[in-house]
Nucleic acid binder design. Structure first.
Length: 405
DNA sequence: ATGTCC
């Protein structure tokens, strides 16, 4: 069970009932003070019943990232813009022995273009039916989003072989509802004088947000499926979904709504990915019955150590530094044409997923199944740059033809 | 996070 704080003083509700703020991490996980303060401040929100902080806790705009909170009222700002964001893990029908890093990296560069109108699949049809405008469907987006081909680094318990195979390759997709969730949140901010007291889930405003929230959650899950299908198509293989775990959403329960912000909303018996940084190990874990205490939430990744602004100047100052940002210790590569994004998303900006997993296991929330190595990470392609390169190649070929006569 | 803020 987490270390409970706030049984008196500022964390006591006006009615006198204390709001439990549980920490599911140890002192080994360094947590920024402002994130702890944001977590403690949530105890003052009307209707708040229980708050859980995880080892990847870090500060966010309207509240901390890496938390789960049970409340009788709805707080859209705790979920933020990327409603439905999550991680999906797929098994690729591509044996590790046949896998070629450079070839796969080249193929994945095609993922930047929108999939809208370019592919047929059940997931695509379902997602299209949810919203009239779906032009970003099948695209990964920016920030910490990615699509990564992985291999098993180590199986951490005998049962792991029921789920994962060292001879196979896997695909981890981290993406969300793209511009759809951003529109829903902007509308919600504009349509409500204040969200400070939260929304009554039974009110018109509460129902309006919940309805659009549910649509974003479904759309985001389909978006991840479509991204995986597109990746499989360019890699000339197939994908099989192993687990789809959202980490930015609310879930209705008997006592209220659980708000998951950068905390994976897991299900008993379904395995879940915990992402490392793009040049460090990720993990696959099995949620245990003990996760009921944390509202069936666990960490979804390593968590940031430095915020984006803080990263500029720390690395990427020389050509060789920039090149090393796109390589990892296992011979893997990252595709990121955006220099600023590469710096902001450098492995050094993140804490260790291994420590996150250790803390969660220590609190009885999970059992680690496997450590996963990054082989090819797709982040961002500069389409214009790619086109310019193609144009240049065409010019050169024409020039050669002219010379030959 | 966001076809992003200048």
């Amino acid at each position: 069970m987490g270390n409970l704080i706030g049984d008196s003083g500022p964390n006591t509700m006006p009615c006198g009932k204390p709001v439990a703020v549980a920490h599911y991490f140890t002192e080994k996980s360094w947590i920024e003070g402002s994130a702890l303060q944001q977590l403690a401040d949530m105890a003052h929100m009307p209707g708040m019943l229980s708050i859980a902080g995880f080892p990847d806790l870090h500060p966010g705009k309207y509240g901390p990232v890496g938390m789960a909170a049970l409340s009788t009222r709805l707080y859209p700002q705790l979920i933020g813009t990327d409603i439905g964001c999550g991680m999906s893990l797929f098994e690729l029908d591509l044996p590790l022995r046949k896998f070629r890093i450079e070839k796969a990296a080249d193929a994945l560069r095609q993922l930047e273009t929108p999939a809208f109108g370019q592919m047929d699949s059940d997931a695509m049809e379902n997602a299209r039916s949810l919203v009239a405008k779906a032009d970003t469907l099948g695209t990964i987006g920016g920030g910490n989003h990615f699509c990564e081909i992985q291999a098993v680094g180590e199986l951490l318990c005998p049962e792991a072989s029921l789920h994962l195979d060292k001879q196979k390759t896997y695909l981890l997709v981290h993406s969300g509802s793209r511009n759809l969730g951003a529109i829903v949140f902007a509308d919600t901010l504009a349509g409500n004088a204040s969200l400070d007291e939260g929304l009554d889930p039974a009110s018109d405003a509460g129902i309006a947000w919940l309805t659009r929230h549910d649509l974003c959650v479904d759309w985001a899950a389909l978006n991840r499926q479509i991204i995986a299908e597109r990746a499989a198509a360019v890699l000339r293989t197939e994908v099989r979904l192993i687990a789809d775990v959202p980490h930015n959403l609310v879930r209705a329960g008997a006592e209220g709504h659980v708000h998951y912000k950068g905390a994976a909303a897991v299900t008993a018996g379904v395995i879940a990915p915990i992402a490392g940084s793009r040049a460090s190990l990720s993990y696959v874990v099995e949620p245990l019955a003990g996760a009921a205490i944390s509202h069936w939430a666990i960490s979804h990744g390593a968590g940031r150590k430095y915020d984006r602004r803080n990263m500029h100047g720390r690395t990427g100052n020389t050509r060789s530094e920039r090149e090393s940002l796109l390589r990892n210790a296992w011979g893997g590569v990252a595709i990121c044409d955006d220099r600023r994004l590469a710096v902001e998303e450098a492995a050094g900006a993140y804490k260790s997923a291994a420590q996150v997993v250790e803390d969660l296991a220590g609190h009885g929330l999970i059992r680690p199944l496997a450590a996963m190595k990054p082989l090819v990470t797709y982040k961002k392609v500069d389409i214009d740059h790619d086109e310019a390169k193609r144009d240049k190649g065409r010019e050169r070929r024409q020039e050669r033809r002219r010379k030959r006569g």
